[in-house]
Simulated assay, not measured.
Amino acid sequence: MSAVSNSASVHRLVAIDAMRFIAMLAIVIIHALPSDSPAPDWRSLLVHACRFAVPCFFLASGFFFASKISDIKAIKRQTVRLLSIYVLALIAYIAITPLTWFQWPDLHNPLRVVLFIIGGPAFHLWFLPTLVLVQWILYLLRPYGFGVIFAIGAVAYIFGLIIAPYHYLAHLPDLQLIDKTWQTISRPFSALLFVSIGVWLAERKPSIKLATAVLMTIGGLGLQMAESMWLYQSGFGTFNSVDFSIGTLFYGVGIFCLATLYRGPMIPQSASWGRLTLYMYVSHMFFLYILHPAFLSHAPLPSLTLCLLTSVFSLLGAWIFSRVKMSKFFSGHVHRKLRATPVE
Rank of each mutant, 00 (worst) to 15 (best):
A170N: 12
A170K: 12
A170V: 12
H171V: 10
P173Y: 05
P173S: 01
P173W: 06
D174K: 11
D174T: 08
D174H: 14
D174N: 14
Q176G: 02
L177G: 01
L177A: 09
L177N: 03
L177S: 00
L177Y: 03
L177K: 08
I178L: 13
I178Q: 14
I178Y: 08
D179V: 01
D179T: 08
D179H: 13
D179Q: 14
D179M: 13
K180G: 00
K180C: 05
K180I: 00
K180S: 14
K180V: 00
T181K: 10
W182Y: 11
Q183C: 10
Q183N: 14
Q183W: 09
Q183G: 15
Q183D: 15
I185T: 02
I185G: 02
S186Q: 05
S186H: 09
R187I: 15
R187W: 05
R187M: 13
R187N: 12
R187G: 01
P188H: 06
P188W: 10
P188D: 09
F189L: 12
F189S: 13
F189V: 04
F189M: 15
S190H: 04
S190W: 00
L192S: 06
L192E: 04
L193N: 06
L193K: 02
L193M: 12
L193R: 11
L193S: 06
L193D: 03
F194N: 07
F194D: 09
V195W: 03
V195I: 14
V195D: 05
V195P: 04
V195C: 02
V195M: 15
S196R: 08
S196E: 01
S196D: 04
I197K: 00
I197Y: 06
G198L: 10
G198H: 02
V199T: 07
V199Y: 10
V199M: 07
V199D: 03
V199R: 06
V199N: 08
W200S: 06
W200P: 02
W200K: 09
L201T: 08
L201G: 08
L201Y: 07
A202H: 06
A202I: 07
A202L: 00
A202K: 09
A202G: 06
A202Q: 14
A202P: 00
E203W: 01
R204W: 11
R204T: 11
R204D: 07
R204A: 11
R204L: 08
R204I: 11
R204Q: 15
K205P: 02
K205C: 05
P206I: 03
P206V: 03
P206F: 06
P206G: 05
P206N: 07
S207G: 07
S207V: 14
S207N: 14
S207A: 14
I208E: 08
I208T: 11
I208A: 03
I208K: 03
K209S: 15
K209L: 11
K209P: 00
L210I: 12
L210D: 09
L210M: 11
